[in-house]
Design a protein around this nucleic acid. Structure first.
Lengths: 127, 127
DNA sequence: TTGACATATTCCCGTATCGGCATATATTAA
DNA sequence: TTAATATATGCCGATACGGGAATATGTCAA
């Protein structure tokens, strides 16, 4: 066995910065359900066309983008829902930076510290 | 060049499922700022110790966990804030599954469609 | 048909992975 | 010191990546 293939899941696919870039430009501005052909993407990013096609291939396999043929073009569009598992996973760690939640956590720790003190009887020391 | 190293950033580090598992058990329950030694992690997961140590090494390099030596033990703890960039990035795609926001997006698209119609003056046709 | 355009695929190379196993290093105990 | 415990590191093999360049495939136009 080796590293899990980039096509294993969304986590693996978005590990590559360039793939995130592609998703980014496909997402575009607000409400832009942009359908873009490969040439547009190539020009937008300025990368060699095969490279773009290959990255699109990975994103396709994972379902992060969908394609539809339109004449000799292939129109790619973002399939954002496929990022949801990533979102849900990382969201579980929100409390580590969200101040609102952090305060709750800190208080919980404080309470735990106090009960520990009780168990050890005295040992009142600060710092 | 090859694939970006797993130690490049949080994105690369969490691409590996086992690394996510480790983070998961280090996160533990509510308010648990658990400091766990390697042996505990090994027993918890049931993986070979070197494997655990190596994954911890990657997580360490990326800053997702911190270590502190305690006797002959090394106490690992989660450094959740390091996941924030991932959260922020993926959060930008929230609108693709969040129904609340989706409605807003749909309305925006509707408005755009309407203004496009105005620009093209007549050209009322379909297809 | 021939040719131009759009996109995907193939081959090559260098690299870094992950897992397994063995072993080195560090720390405490006897 | 020697032994035992805790953890990290080194080496191996297999894999597959990502970039580059060339080329194949597919589609429309003349």
């Amino acid at each position: 066995m080796a590293r899990s293939p980039t096509t294993a899941d969304a986590f693996a696919a978005i590990a590559e910065p360039r793939r995130r870039e592609i998703l980014g430009i496909l997402a575009g501005g607000i409400g832009e359900a942009a359908e873009r052909d490969v040439t547009w993407i190539v020009e937008e990013l300025g990368w060699p066309q095969p490279q773009v096609s290959k990255h699109l291939g990975v994103l396709r396999k994972v379902g992060l983008v969908s394609v539809v043929r339109k004449g000799r073009r292939r129109m790619y569009s973002l399939n954002g829902e496929e990022l949801r598992p990533v979102y849900e996973w990382v969201k579980a760690y929100e409390r580590y930076w969200d101040h609102q939640l952090k305060r709750i956590k800190d208080r919980a720790e404080q309470m735990e510290r106090e009960s520990s003190l009780k168990e050890r009887s005295s040992h009142s020391g600060r710092t």
